[in-house]
Structure formats: C-alpha cells, structure tokens
C-alpha cells in the first residue's frame, strides 16, 4: 500500500452553505425599532391624600370624545383636524382675556421670572371610543405642545425645540434651554379617571 495523497476538501459548496445561513438570518431579522407616543400614567394617589384643590374652569380645556368618535372641545363640536389650532390658542392663552387661562409668575432657570399659563387639558373618552381616534386626539395635543415649544425656542434661543432636545444629552447649555422651554409650556394633559377605579373587582 503506497502513501495515498490526501485529497483536498472541496470548498466549492461552502458558498452555498453560507448563503443558506445568510438567507435564514435575513428572514428572521427584525430591524424595526418600536415607535410611538410616550406618555406617563399618573400614580395611584394614596388613600389618605386630601382631594386635590379645585381648579378654575377657565384654566381647563375639556375634551370629550364619545362612542361615535365625535369631539367636544370646550363645549364646541369640532373635527379632529381643528383640534391642534384650538389647543394651541388655549395653551398660549392671552393677557387680559377672562375666558382664557390665568398666568402665574414662575421663575425658570435661564429665563428669569416669566408669566406661565396655568393651562390644563382634560381628556375624557368613552369606553366605545375607537383606539384610532384616541391616538389621533393624543397626537394632536402633543403636536400642539411641540409646535408652541418650537416657536418659543426659535424666538428665544434661535433654535427649534427639536434641536435642543437632541443636543440636551451632550451639552449642559442646551439642556438648560431645553428644560426652560419645557417649563414655559409644561405639558399638562390629564385623563379623567374612569369610574371603575377603586370599585369592586
């Protein structure tokens, strides 16, 4: 028996195997990151907490959505497309107008003492409201705040709010400005408590 030459392994099919694996990972991979509207729920108040102080009617914009997805904003029937403008007018408020929200002198770092509108938006929906409508309303309200903040940041710091928000992570100066804009137009969206809370299970 002579020495047999060890034949080379044929690597021609290597590419095929690799392709197969590649296709498997291509199919199973999910690149999409989740996107959405980020909100915070209020904490459950402790049982012994005194009831919150009454808020003046003029400081509240009441938004009701019924089971037919119709909107009632501050007593007026409205389309969802009109909501953004209405909310902006309300949040901005107006000096000397008795039906618009009051102002409160507040000290904001970076801005000094300024007049901040005491606005609160109260949202109440029916159990039959569609989720699509609910998101639309939420979206319009967030958009109203964002637009106002953008305008204000542009006028005060010559930069849009979105840019400040991006830079807030890296620069302290931008962070202070970002905080100041947020404090000037605080996002106060309150969702009315549904009746089931605290009731029998």
């Amino acid at each position: 028996m002579g020495k047999r030459e060890v034949s080379e392994i044929n690597a021609g099919s290597m590419a095929d195997i690799a392709f197969l694996l590649l296709i498997f990972f291509l199919v199973t991979t999910t690149m999409d990151t989740d996107k959405g509207l980020i909100r915070k729920l209020p904490e459950i108040p402790p049982a012994d907490q005194p009831p919150p102080p009454k808020i003046k009617q003029r400081n509240i914009l009441e938004i009701l959505v019924n089971a037919n997805d119709q909107l009632l904003v501050g007593g007026e029937y409205m389309q969802v497309t009109e909501l953004r403008e209405r909310a902006k007018v309300f949040i901005r408020s107006e000096v000397g107008n008795p039906v618009m929200p009051e102002y409160k002198e507040t000290e904001i770092p970076g801005l000094g003492v300024v007049e901040v509108s005491k606005q609160i938006i109260s949202l109440q929906n029916d159990n039959g409201t569609s989720y699509e409508m609910y998101i639309k309303v939420q979206n319009e309200l967030v958009a109203a705040y964002n637009e106002l903040r953008n305008e204000f940041a542009q006028q005060k710091f010559n930069k849009p709010f979105t840019e400040l928000a991006q830079k807030a992570g890296s620069s302290d100066a931008a962070k202070e400005k970002w905080r100041a804009v947020k404090a000037f137009y605080p996002q106060r969206i309150s969702e009315a408590e549904p009746k089931k809370v605290g009731g029998p299970e």
Partner: peptide, 15 residues
C-alpha cells in the same frame, strides 16, 4: 388601570 395599580407608569402607545 391595571398597569397603574402595579406602578407600571411609563407607557408607549405604539404608532
């Protein structure tokens, strides 16, 4: 409400 009861407050409405 169930999430509120267990103190899971940070929500994201996926959109």
């Amino acid at each position: 409400q169930a999430l509120r009861q267990v103190n899971a407050l940070k929500l994201n409405y996926s959109a």
